[in-house]
Amino acid sequence: MTVIARRLAGHLARGFAMILVVTTISFVIIRSIPGDPMRARYEKLVEQGMSPDQAERATAALYGFMPKGTLWEQYADYMRGLLHLDLGQSLSVPGAEVTTLLASAATWTILPVLVGTLLSFAVGIIMGVYAAIKRSSKLGDVLAVSGSLLHGLPQYVLALLLSAVFTTLLPIFPTGGTADVTLEPGLNAAYIGSLIQYATMPVLTYALAGYGGWILAMKSSVVTVLGDDFIMAAELRGLKRGLIFRYVARNAILPLFTILALSLGLLFGGAIFIERIFTYPGLGLLLLNSITDRDYTLMGGAFLLITVAIVIANIVADMLYTAIDPRVRSGQEAS
């Protein structure tokens, strides 16, 4: 247990440093992008004949606040706010807190990403085992080739393809939104059914996009383990096939758990294209809109959230590995 605690502490320290760096960089970069909407509004008001003071007050009233002082002071303000989980006001949605916007968008990203990834992980792992066992037959070839093809296809191409086929050619699935707007949100079958229907396209894209990678990774992992001496030793000791299968599976899946957690983190970034194509109001779409609108507080918040997601994924991956692999567990104990 102490090993895990020590590793966790290390991860938290590193994660904290990473978050600090990302926040700082995004703060500086975002503030130096020309075209601040608040400034634009302020200048417009001045042009329309307001005095600078009046214009500033009017702008501040609309957005709820107005950045003041040097970049340094703004940075200090921003970081102070962060400590209270206050990311400031959105500039494109007047009066809205960045945290509220992020929270509602995050739900629409986390759930589909999670479901899609776990689905592709489960299917990809099983198919990967088959591809490995049948690697010298036609079925194995077909599986491996399907994996390579899907793996090589960029996510957005896949999303465009699916969108073209299932929303345009055969309009089975809706595009845009999270559910039928005419339905009453709540725990009723119609609404939940509609939620699932609207989420199908993004989930399917995440699943298909990941599947190729999983099948290839699992296949190569299984082939490696099958060639390991201890598997042959187990066969020569007459172990039951089911047991040998479990030996293989557990050893082969181990390295994939790390990739799983990491890919969950990375998918938050990948959601940008997919949510754009399916107009699904998740984090990716929010980030994209914030960039178009030059909403730098929202942008910074979105970057921060993605960073946090990756840091957490890293930690989860490592903890999983530590929990499963006895070598890591005691290796750390010794050092």
Partner: peptide
Amino acid sequence: AAQNSLNPLK
């Protein structure tokens, strides 16, 4: 290769 004849996870 009896040195590697054990399942490393068990």
